[in-house]
Design a protein around this nucleic acid. Structure first.
Length: 272
DNA sequence: TATCAGGGCCTAG
DNA sequence: CTAGGCCCTGAT
């Protein structure tokens, strides 16, 4: 099926902006990308300046993927609010034009960002993939077998040895704590969807191994709380090097997280 | 082969 | 508030 997207939309940049770990390029010619959201799988191919060929039907596109890609938000307008005196931010937004903040699965983001600490992005990816193969449901498509991200229920009997084999290292206890808290409904990730930022933040950080950075990532990339701007080592370097140690994101209010993504992409790209 | 750093967090002081 | 430790992996 063909669709048209007129606002900023660049799949390479979305995949490369560090907000997701499983989406990938599945074929180089024609260039095709694969996204997974819960049990839904999307193959999407760019076949014109603003047109795409998608593997799902219109209903799934509108109900699931449009929301996943945050298509109701106008990113072009958001880029245009950057004041000209914030040169570094402006350059980042030019470089990162096409990035969107995905609305990914809450549980998956929680576990993924717990895993992410003190790991490089390639290491995070392989670690998550092992977890999916070990505990996730297997889905057969026409061309491949795909393992979905495991639910808390599927992981409730996970033991330390198995998780160590997945490369979790010292995060094993963190993962197990998250599994238990969610499985036993001590924390209901879906029900805190509409709760205030502060409450959501406190709930998330009550999980072992979830600090400021991880909580903000989960809030931004799963709960679409775009006011959240996670500060990692890379962003900290930018703040230090280009902003004299003063956080530039706060000034962007509800768009702070979007600015953070532009900068993260920009700074990562510079060292690639 | 050895070393380094990676989208941090916890604990002790 | 700060320093040190942490388990493992990919890159050089």
């Amino acid at each position: 099926m063909k669709i048209t997207i007129n606002d900023d939309f660049d799949l390479d940049k979305i995949i490369d902006s560090g907000q997701c770990f499983r989406p990938c390029i599945i074929c180089e010619s024609p260039k095709t990308y694969r996204f997974i959201y819960r049990q839904y799988i999307l193959y999407i191919t760019k076949d014109g300046p603003n047109t795409y060929d998608i593997s799902c039907n219109l209903n799934d596109w509108n109900e699931i993927w449009s929301k996943y890609f945050d298509l109701t938000r106008n990113y072009e307008n958001i880029r245009s609010i950057i004041p000209c005196d914030d040169k570094y931010m402006y350059e980042s937004s030019i470089d990162g034009k096409g990035i969107r903040i995905l609305r990914q699965d809450k549980w998956e983001m929680l576990i993924s960002f717990i895993i992410s600490q003190r790991k490089s992005i390639p290491a995070i990816r392989s670690c998550i993939e092992k977890l999916c193969v070990k505990y996730g449901s297997k889905i057969k498509t026409e061309n491949e077998d795909i393992y979905l991200f495991p639910t808390a229920q599927q992981m409730i009997d996970a033991n330390e040895e198995e998780l160590a084999q997945c490369g979790m290292g010292y995060r094993i206890g963190y993962i197990l704590d998250a599994v238990r808290k969610v499985y036993y409904k001590e924390i209901d990730l879906e029900n805190i969807d509409r709760i205030s930022d502060d409450y959501l933040y406190n709930q998330l950080t009550s999980i072992k191994g979830v600090g400021k950075k991880v909580a903000n990532c989960v809030m931004l990339f799963a709960y679409n709380r775009t006011g959240r701007a996670p500060v990692d080592v890379w962003i900290a370097r930018v703040i230090d090097e280009f902003y004299n140690g003063k956080d530039p994101f706060y000034a962007y209010g509800e768009n702070a997280g979007i600015m953070q993504q532009y900068v993260f992409y920009h700074i990562q790209n510079r060292y690639r």
